[in-house]
Design a protein around this nucleic acid. Structure first.
Lengths: 148, 148
DNA sequence: TTTTGTGCAAAAGGTTTGCATACGA
DNA sequence: TCGTATGCAAACCTTTTGCACAAAA
């Protein structure tokens, strides 16, 4: 998360990717922000600092980073694809109500394979859909009669 | 799945939806085909039978059906939203390689809640991402040295 | 120097919207 | 009849593409 300029540059070169200022900015942003931004959000931030970064280049950079394994693409049902630099195996939780996304520490889904009788399929990861803590609390508040 | 015209019509009226020929066609298609078509696929089929069905109306109809609980909207990470008339609780499996979607019989995800320490979140359903049986087999074939 | 990456602008899906018209209850 | 649904076309949002130009190794 706290990578230096040299480290970021090296990790790009190691994978055969030239270290351009645009790629550097995109990767640095993802390393600094452990959220799950969309390409548009990344473009917004990066472009504000250097207006010479186009939307197409953000997409190009993201694809290059995903291709090299430095970044992971996450499609969780929202309108836009999201990206994260958290590349260790993990699951995701998505809140149906607020759309919030949370990383879930990895656990073997073996029990699920068993539960669903899916012994011949191989499971890579899970997406858990439901209500996050704040939304559960918010709903309780409304349903307990506090109208005003 | 084998609903008569009268039954489909009645289920629409029961929920305060007018039974227009377009809505009828959309709902009938979803009841007949237990797959997970996109709006565009539905429009293609319905429009072929009655060219007077516009794209916008297919979207309107789908939203009305989803709003009334007759149809479920499924966002599984593909490019387009998918729809299904299978409204009983169930999970989904999505193949990373071929994009195929399978319904998974419902099971309580309680074990998962426990595994991930997410006691205060409420889980509605799971999306399992991985490789389906055919794709697992296909990959084995390629990796076992059969080049030609 | 040579290859790879970039900016721009246009286009391609998927989906929504505004408004006059048509149709179901 | 009356109010809701529909068709059309245009707009919107996310993402991709083609091509001339710029920059990294």
């Amino acid at each position: 998360m706290r990578a230096t300029r040299a480290e970021i540059s090296a990790s790009l070169l190691d994978r055969g990717l030239r270290c351009t200022s645009q790629r550097y900015a995109v990767l640095q942003f993802l390393l600094k922000h452990p959220c799950h931004p969309t390409a548009e959000e990344i473009h917004g931030v990066v472009n504000r600092r250097d207006p010479r970064v186009s939307r197409a280049t953000v997409y190009n950079s993201l694809h290059a980073l995903v291709g090299s394994g430095l970044v992971r693409e996450v499609k969780l049902g929202g309108d836009a694809t999201r990206f994260e630099s958290h590349i260790e195996r993990h699951h995701h939780f998505v809140c149906d109500q607020c759309g919030g996304i949370e990383d879930i520490e990895w656990f073997e889904p073996g029990g699920i394979t068993h539960l669903s009788g899916m012994t011949s399929r191989s499971i890579r990861a899970l997406v858990l859909q439901g209500l996050c803590e704040p939304c559960v609390a918010k709903n309780k508040q409304y349903s307990s009669g506090e109208e005003s």
